[in-house]
Amino acid sequence: SKGEELFTGVVPILVELDGDVNGHKFSVSGEGEGDATYGKLTLKFICTTGKLPVPWPTLVTTLSYGVQCFSRYPDHMKQHDFFKSAMPEGYVQERTIFFKDDGNYKTRAEVKFEGDTLVNRIELKGIDFKEDGNILGHKLEYNYNSHNVYIMADKQKNGIKVNFKIRHNIEDGSVQLADHYQQNTPIGDGPVLLPDNHYLSTQSALSKDPNEKRDHMVLLEFVTAAGITHGMDELYK
């Protein structure tokens, strides 16, 4: 796709999030870079409003799984890469995230190029959380598991539907599940690639910047598309 050509090198990323969870309002600002050749993201996020009212790991899918245009699609799968094909005009990404036995996040993001920078601007609203639950009670460990993110075409809306389940580790050794339902639709009216069913395999590492006084998260992530085999004719070339 034409959009794919915008991702040949390292691309700067800007992320802006405004959130409200159970009436606790907050903002997060992030910057870093993405390299789609390797499916690599390096980002640093800062809570610009003081202390973040929710655990950082609960925002990873909104912040970095928010820029799935940096996923590495192998050559034989490039015609299934909706995310890059929607660029530079970008796409709207909407999600509902259900935390098992707790509340939910609803998010709406616009992901697009502004100049040479890929920008992810998000509004997040969280409701029905227990004040002493795993999320508002800050009981999650500061780490992140690997996940597969399942993608299918949504021809009606000229976009994709995505769903997956995140496993958050809790300090007591148990797990907090979070079910994600995602819809992506193009902002522009140019042609986009509608994929066959496949998935993104994601690995994320969270860390801290020892010199950063503000509440923050440093993230390194690798994302690769998989799940579609080479056609038989490919094998015999």
Rank of each mutant, 00 (worst) to 15 (best):
S85F: 07
D233V: 06
P53S: 01
T8S: 11
I127F: 14
I228F: 10
G103S: 04
P57L: 02
I170L: 14
I228V: 11
E16D: 09
D196A: 14
E141V: 07
L219Q: 01
K208E: 05
I228D: 10
D132G: 09
S71I: 06
H138P: 02
V60M: 01
M87T: 03
D35K: 03
D189N: 07
A205D: 06
M87V: 05
N163H: 09
N169S: 09
N120Y: 02
H168L: 08
K165Q: 14
R121S: 05
F82Y: 07
R167C: 14
L177R: 08
S174R: 13
Y142C: 07
K78N: 04
T185A: 11
D20A: 06
V54M: 05
V15D: 01
N169T: 14
D20V: 10
Y65C: 00
V111L: 11
A36V: 10
D179G: 07
L235M: 05
S207R: 09
G126C: 04
Y150S: 05
N158S: 11
T48P: 02
L14P: 00
L200H: 02
K157Q: 09
K51N: 09
D102E: 14
N104S: 13
H168P: 00
T62N: 01
L140P: 02
F7V: 03
E212G: 01
T62P: 03
F45S: 02
K112Q: 07
H24Y: 03
D179E: 13
T62A: 06
H180P: 01
I187S: 06
Y150D: 07
V175G: 12
W56R: 00
L43M: 15
K25M: 06
K106A: 10
K161E: 10
V149G: 03
P53L: 03
E33A: 11
L14R: 14
K208I: 08
H76Y: 12
D128Y: 12
S64A: 02
A205V: 15
T61S: 14
I160S: 02
S204C: 07
F45Y: 14
G3S: 13
H80D: 06
N22K: 03
S146C: 08
D75A: 08
I160G: 01
Q183L: 10
I187A: 14
G159C: 09
E212V: 01
L206R: 00
Q176L: 14
G227E: 07
V162E: 15
V60E: 00
K161M: 12
V28M: 02
H80Q: 10
K161R: 11
T96I: 14
S201C: 14
F113I: 04
K106T: 08
H198L: 02
I166F: 02
I97V: 10
T224N: 08
M232V: 12
E234K: 07
A86S: 13
I135F: 03
Y65N: 00
M232R: 15
V92L: 06
D132V: 06
E212D: 05
L235P: 14
G133R: 04
K213M: 09
F82L: 02
I170S: 15
G34S: 01
Y150H: 08
I135V: 08
G173C: 04
P74H: 15
R72C: 14
N148H: 10
D101H: 04
F164L: 05
K2M: 07
T224P: 01
K100Q: 14
E131G: 07
K44T: 13
C47R: 01
G9E: 08
G19D: 00
V10A: 10
M232K: 11
D116E: 11
N120H: 02
K112T: 11
L177V: 15
N158V: 03
S29T: 14
Y144D: 04
N197T: 05
H80Y: 14
F45V: 07
V11M: 04
Y181C: 11
S29A: 13
I160L: 10
A36T: 10
K161T: 15
P57H: 03
V223E: 02
L177P: 07
H216P: 00
L43P: 00
H180L: 03
E89K: 04
T42S: 15
G137W: 05
Q68R: 01
V28E: 00
R72S: 11
